[in-house]
Design a protein around this nucleic acid. Structure first.
Lengths: 333, 333
DNA sequence: GCTATATATGAAAGCGCTTACATCATACTA
DNA sequence: TAGTATGATGTAAGCGCTTTCATATATAGC
């Protein structure tokens, strides 16, 4: 592999000049630039990014920590992020946090030790205080899908409360009054916020909350199954169930069918996230759209503008969810 | 951030010694090691991985190129890979190839320019020759889900032909004789191989191939929908349809329902991949299990053993698929 | 007690770049 | 025409490590 030194020699200039034409940060005479470019081409020169990083104290890498690498949700998010950085010539280092405090912290340390110029974090288990302290350090980061007041300017989040509200409002407007709720793990902020939105909608419609119709799930299909079973077992009447995400809604749908119920005739089901398979469930799932891909793009642009002074984009901090009405919900007759 | 130099000073040794205790590659007296470790702890020293890379000519990073970052298939694969490397202290740089030749080549160049110690490639559009030439270069790589004879020792692939065979064999054993086939894009090797397996099964059962019952899809849900519509429109009788992946099977299921057919009563459907949502379709999808997560792990171990001389694992090159029988297929009566 | 051998440590030369700073033309001003 | 600002290039000092080679110290053999 040719080094900058060989290029310099071939072009008959100093290596500083070669560096200049690469980085385009200092005027270079057109004739000189041409010579250098020619020499590079001839030698098949490709800069050593490690050496660049060491010398410039910039690694051009961004660390991404997500809970899981699989699952439709994170996939869409990563796609948005990668596309944006790749176009900017930055690269993305990923790590999984598995929604556990220790693994998440490990992941962050790991990424920092990799000299990432910035981090994009989708963390759930780590405390606000930990993140606030992390913000004192010198690795900038954005928080995706999390809002912390003290760090408001580096949070990109969804208005989950509104999403929860919209889901339940939709059912209420359809005439439902006995609405079951299968929540996510309540230690997760978004699970709590979605539930809060549910409660607000209920209140607005002067509809009492029936705690017997509540189940705390795990955001996975099995949680939806168990939730529905538990709710049915409670013998409380209900005409609709809102699930805090699509995976659980899908589980509920499957279980409903297995138990001989049909959706939406016997009861309606709403999901949350509008994950890509929501369109392929049976019946097609009414859900709340979570613009996660757009949010991934936005997080990447935040980094590009704050850290690399590129991209003069306005950064939108809070995204709004909206209802996607499909076939799993139904007017009450 | 403390440097190795400061640690050396604090411990009263040379920086070479500090380096040695970090890398554990040269004997260091126990007393010295303790002193150094103490100094490190006190200063909160953390080695600069960029400098390590430059000096050692090892970046400890592995580049991963997948077609897409989203989708259940790639997610599972990435999870397997990341877990393995993270445990080994290596990090993973990802890029998406989007199944297009140019993007894939770009991605590979990009990853190489990032000084990856090795690459794990899941490429579809790039030619065998390109890869064979790439193998001449000095960045080692494994190929996932692809088999090239000349590169056999660095391929980790599924026996797709067998998978295709198993799917169709299952139907034949259930008494089906008029079997439609919705293929993946035939320029993709795995699509062709799966179809070949289908043909072999047919032959073995002395069952003629009806080209009217063939549709070339795109491996996505829409492809399954279009495929089923096209097959129905052909007016040829059929009692089963095998789809070259689960996404298309899911699309076919949805469309079948929309057109008033019920599966498996009116016809059976088989998928391929056993992607996680296959269990949540209605009816639950009979499919061919693709052990992609295990294959991801294996690819990572290949790198660990071939490139880093770690992990004395036997590398399994070819994985065998097997049939998962669920509710979308049915004995013919 | 003295040499031969093994073991532990230090000195210093890079790894391939970036970037102050110095230098040298050239162009402009008065 | 000298004096100065300006633009283009070169020089060289790092960036924070690894690693070879040389040196110093300890162990063993006779």
């Amino acid at each position: 592999m040719a080094t900058i030194y060989e290029v310099a020699k071939a072009a008959g200039v100093s290596l500083a000049t070669v560096s200049r034409v690469m980085n385009n940060n200092t005027p270079v005479r057109q004739a000189t630039r041409t010579k250098v470019l020619a020499a590079m081409a001839e030698l098949g020169y490709r800069p050593n990014s490690i050496a660049q990083s060491l010398a410039s104290n910039r690694s051009n890498s961004i660390g991404i920590l997500v809970s899981e690498l699989h699952g439709p949700f994170y996939g869409a998010m990563l796609t948005g992020i990668e596309a944006e950085f790749r176009a900017a010539g930055k690269h993305v280092i990923i790590a999984a946090g598995h929604s556990e405090r220790e693994t998440e912290q490990d992941g962050i340390e790991f990424l920092k030790s990799r000299n990432c110029d910035a981090l994009i974090l989708h963390v759930e288990a780590v405390s606000d205080d930990y993140l606030i302290e992390l913000a004192q350090g010198d690795t900038p980061f954005v928080l995706l899908n999390r809002h912390i007041d003290a760090l408001a300017d580096r949070c990109i989040s969804l208005n989950n409360e509104l999403g929860g509200y919209l889901a339940t409002q939709h059912l209420l407007e359809q005439g439902h009054r006995q609405i079951a709720y299968i929540a996510g793990p309540m230690w997760k902020t978004d699970a709590r916020e979605r539930y809060a939105g549910h409660q607000r909608a209920l209140q607005e419609f002067h509809c009492a909350l029936n705690t017997g119709l509540f189940f705390e799930g795990d955001f996975r299909e099995t949680g939806g199954s168990e939730g529905l079973q538990s709710i049915i077992a409670s013998k409380q009447p209900f005409t609709a169930v809102v699930c805090a995400n699509d995976e659980m809604a899908s589980g509920a749908l499957t279980t409903a069918r297995e138990l001989g119920y049909s959706v939406p005739e016997d009861f309606s089901v709403v999901g949350f996230d509008n994950v890509n398979f929501a369109y392929y469930t049976y019946p097609k799932l009414t859900t709340i759209d979570y613009p996660i891909s757009a949010m991934g793009h936005m997080a990447a642009r935040w980094v590009l503008s704050q850290v690399y002074q590129q991209a003069d984009t306005e950064v939108q901090q809070v995204f709004e969810p909206h209802l996607i009405s499909r076939d799993s919900t139904h007017l009450i007759v």
